[in-house]
Design a protein around this nucleic acid. Structure first.
Length: 728
DNA sequence: GTGTTGAGTATTTTT
DNA sequence: TACTCAACAC
């Protein structure tokens, strides 16, 4: 039942606002999601809107399903609006109307893994030796030009090229060839990547008036969550979907939480919105319900350092709460040890449960140290987004089987399963079939059919290919009981997939995943009895994580990247790796994206309800090719806002902590020439060619010094003139 | 031709 | 540490 009594003044005004464009600037923890969901319920229950004619955009699938649940609980009937990510809404539109663009409706969506496969095919066919552009790099740049809508034919300076991440002009023709081939292959196989979902839908709506009007008339009201992370393409898409006569649009966002500029989000979008919808009513939510006063102080003082920003401070009626703690460890082990001890303490005195605690970090690989320490102490944890459910080998294998049954010409899926479980059709054979297919203008599958019919004269192992084709035939002709799950079960049995998994490591976990896939297929069918396998495959092609991640996390400490943590909250939050070059990351420092890094830190801090820990360590790090220093963000927050703790055995020298007092942490000593000066392990030196490095070993007159990549560890003569030591 | 093992190298963020 | 790629054994 709709209950408006729990809303505060501003929230109530936003929820009950009249029709027409509305913009909500909502700080972290100010009840943004509550406002959005209550608004939808209000529109339906109070204003008489038809739920099926309401469209809501969310940023993640997770957020979409949460919103669906919340609205379901608020409403009496079961009709729920269209809620989804831009990508999933685009998919629905394209599945209905892509014909207008002259393409077939049975297109498949490819993920990053598939994209890389396609690119390495291109490398093989074009005999490209990936010296200066590796496949991963090529994909990264392709993604960049597609999201930023860059026309590569117009690139004519090395400067523009460098901005894309290609540093040699000679590499450009190769890259252009790769891009052209990539697009050609996608089109030929009727494939669509994530960017294409947006690009094609935009094209469809922009160029085809009839289609556009159809969709504009379909929706009476459009809502947008996480508006700050909308990119320009998505914004134009939104504009094409909004019925121009009604302009019923309701966007909620927080400019301080823009953390996806690398995916095309841009700060000016709030201005664009106000310019596009002239009569927009704006409401600001700044009363925070989530965090203690002390935590908000930390958040506010950090984000205040951003120059390009609409000033706003979060306020709260909550208590001051416990001190925010900044821990500085000697080594990463000590950092992890400290965190795990704190967690163990909280559990022991029953102040918090595992699931109320989160460890957040800037980049995935940072979870490593802490994981080991958690294992050592028997603390249950769950790493979110670790290996995404649908990226797992066993899941991809089985889904590929399903895909091939739906569409035998699905080359990617076919190539994946042709030798899984192993049946003697290896890479060489696959390459040969591929080559033959290209040369004779046949599909991969058609060549297999011909081969099985003895219509091809070749050296291939025909017996194995025939066995495989017979298997496919058996799977296809399997008497259809109508239950999708039976098809999957049949595949598992016919291929002896379970036995295959037993040969691999982590069998139990893999088999659990298979069971989960079976369950989710069963659930899908009971939810949508009229949908077929193709519908299921389309749906999950946009999913990355399983719905049950929450289940796994029920009684464990949560580990996740800050990007993943967006939209969540925890009673206790540890932000680890608060080090210069880690957070802010060295890469963004080069690219001058410090403000975005600060916003990411702001998002992390504002996840916390009761207790906040900022931790770092001062060990040697190959990332920095140096001893780590504490993050500048700690300095910006201000020492008075938190309580500082050090590891007991800490050997912090003055230089290590100089960041408190000066901008530059190290002072270069006079050039070294006196043989009497003694070096010790851990000393930082500067080499004229290799830059700064740390001494990791001393053998007589030789020093082993670790330098930044690509140099690595070098042995140098102790008193060579190219070495300078840093003052400690 | 296929599958396995070991050395070498690279590390932001996600739909 | 995790992933790729090349060399080796089957």
């Amino acid at each position: 039942m709709l209950d408006l009594s729990k809303l505060n003044h501003n929230q109530l005004k936003a929820v009950t606002a009249d029709d027409g464009p509305i913009l909500i600037i909502a700080g972290a923890g100010t009840g943004k999601t509550r406002v959005l969901t209550t608004r939808i319920a209000y529109l339906i229950e109070h204003e008489g809107y038809d739920p099926q004619r309401i469209l809501a955009f969310t940023f993640t699938n997770k957020a979409a399903s949460e919103m669906r649940n919340r609205i379901n609980n608020m409403l009496i009937n079961n009709y729920v609006p269209w809620i989804g990510t831009y990508h999933s809404i685009c998919l629905k539109i394209l599945k209905q109307d892509i014909n207008a663009l002259g393409r077939e409706q049975n297109f498949n969506i490819i993920d990053e893994h598939d994209q890389l496969g396609i690119i390495s095919d291109i490398y093989k066919e074009g005999e490209i030796y990936a010296k200066d552009i590796k496949p991963k790099k090529a994909l990264e740049v392709i993604e960049k030009i597609k999201t930023a809508e860059i026309d590569i034919t117009k690139i004519n300076s090395i400067h523009q090229l460098k901005e894309l991440g290609i540093y040699k002009w000679e590499s450009f023709p190769t890259f252009k060839y790769i891009v052209a081939q990539y697009e050609k292959k996608l089109l030929r196989n009727n494939l669509v990547d994530f960017n294409d979902l947006l690009i094609l839908t935009h094209k469809l709506l922009a160029e085809h008036v009839v289609v556009r009007e159809k969709w504009q008339n379909k929706f009476d009201y459009i809502l947008v969550d996480e508006f700050q992370d909308t990119n320009y393409m998505q914004f134009r898409l939104l504009n094409l979907l909004i019925n121009p006569n009604k302009q019923n649009v309701f966007a909620v966002g927080d400019p301080d939480q823009t953390i996806y500029t690398w995916r095309g989000a841009y700060p000016n979008i709030f201005d664009d919105y106000l310019n596009n919808f002239k009569h927009t009513k704006t409401y600001v939510l700044d009363l925070n319900y989530r965090s203690t006063k002390k935590i908000l102080k930390v958040a506010n003082s950090l984000i205040a350092h951003n120059q390009q920003r609409i000033e706003k401070d979060l306020v709260t009626n909550n208590d001051f709460g416990d001190n925010v703690i900044c821990y500085i460890g000697d080594t990463s082990q000590q950092e992890s040890h400290y965190i795990v001890q704190q967690i163990a303490g909280m559990i022991k005195n029953k102040s918090y449960a595992y699931h109320e605690i989160a460890v957040l970090y800037r980049a995935k690989h940072l979870s490593r140290n802490i994981e080991q320490e958690l294992i050592n102490n028997n603390i249950p944890y769950y790493v979110f987004g670790d290996i995404r459910f649908y990226q797992r080998r066993e899941i991809k294998d089985l889904i590929s089987y399903l895909k091939v049954l739906v569409k035998p010409n699905d080359e990617i899926a076919l190539k994946r399963i042709i030798n899984v479980p192993t049946r003697g059709i290896g890479q060489k054979t696959v390459d040969a079939i591929h080559k033959y297919a290209t040369a004779n203008n046949l599909s991969f599958y058609e060549v297999l059919v011909k081969c099985a019919n003895d219509e091809i004269d070749s050296e291939w192992n025909k017996k194995n290919i025939k066995t495989f084709m017979l298997l496919l035939e058996r799977l296809t002709n399997e008497p259809k009981s109508g239950a999708l799950v039976d098809t999957l079960q049949f595949i598992i049995n016919a291929t002896k997939y379970k036995d295959y998994l037993k040969e691999l490591d982590q069998f139990e976990e893999r088999w659990d995943n298979v069971t989960e896939l079976i369950a989710s297929l069963a659930e899908y069918q009971s939810k949508y009895p009229n949908n077929n396998m193709a519908n299921f495959l389309d749906e999950i092609s946009l999913y990355t994580d399983s719905n049950d991640a929450k289940l796994h996390a029920r009684n464990s400490v949560s580990l996740m990247t800050i990007h993943f943590a967006k939209g969540t909250e925890f009673k206790v939050v540890f932000i680890i790796g608060m080090n210069e070059d880690i957070f802010p990351s060295s890469r963004t420092l080069q690219e001058d994206d410090l403000e975005e890094e600060r916003r990411i830190a702001y998002v992390a801090i504002t996840r916390s309800m009761h207790k906040l820990y900022l931790t770092c360590n001062l060990a040697f790090s190959p990332i920095a090719a140096n001893k780590l220093t504490p993050s500048r963000f700690l300095k910006e927050i201000g020492k008075d806002k938190y309580h500082e703790e050090h590891s007991e055995m800490i050997s912090i020298s003055k230089a290590d902590l100089q960041w408190y007092d000066s901008e530059k942490p190290f002072v270069v000593e006079e050039q070294y020439s006196d043989t009497n000066i003694k070096f010790k392990i851990g000393d930082v030196i500067v080499h004229t060619l290799f830059g700064s490095g740390v001494i990791v070993g001393i053998n007589g007159d030789m020093l082993d010094v670790a330098f930044k990549a690509p140099w690595g560890v070098k042995s140098l003569i102790k008193n060579h003139k190219s070495i300078k030591r840093l003052k400690n």
